[in-house]
């Protein structure tokens, strides 16, 4: 399984899903109006990754670094989908650590993380910057 890397765009975040290290990163801003074009390949990749992992994966642990400073409401659903797939993998026994980074002044972003946690039954670790 090949890792997935996407460079930062004007309105899209940097993405680095490193399969060898089992370190995933999403960083920057997600405010594209063509969210489907950006996120659909990512969701597809993740779905394949899940299938692959369940058959062949040997790692026990995955770290996900969520470093989005801002995401628009159009992106919110896709971010939800990403966490949903991760949750499915967690249920199958993979240890997943989600590190949710936020500006110490940005309580809204902290609350967004807490909402995802609540809805999905996930446990995030919060890192104030």
């Amino acid at each position: 399984m090949k890792s997935l890397k996407v460079k930062k765009g004007d309105t899209t975040p940097e993405l680095d899903f490193d399969v060898d290290k089992m370190e995933f990163l999403l960083e920057g801003e997600s405010r594209s109006e063509d969210v489907l074009i950006f996120y659909e390949p990512i969701i597809n990749w993740l779905t394949n990754f899940k299938e692959w992992f369940l058959k062949n994966g040997s790692s026990k642990k995955l770290d996900f670094h969520f470093k989005l400073e801002y995401y628009n409401s159009l992106s919110a659903k896709f971010i939800f989908s990403i966490f949903k797939i991760l949750k499915e993998m967690q249920v199958k026994g993979l240890e997943i650590n989600v590190f949710w980074f936020y500006d110490v002044l940005d309580e809204d972003l902290l609350e967004c993380g807490e909402e995802y946690e609540k809805i999905l039954g996930f446990k995030f670790e919060y890192i104030a910057l």
Binding site: L36, N72, S73, L74, D108, E115, I119
Partner: peptide
């Protein structure tokens, strides 16, 4: 907001489905 967020899969999702206006009110 959460009801809309969890209501449908992302693949069938086209517009904002009204999340934007709720988000604005919350912020």
């Amino acid at each position: 907001y959460n009801e809309i967020l969890t209501s449908e899969t992302s693949s069938s999702f086209k517009g904002g489905a009204g999340l934007g206006i709720i988000d604005m009110a919350l912020k």
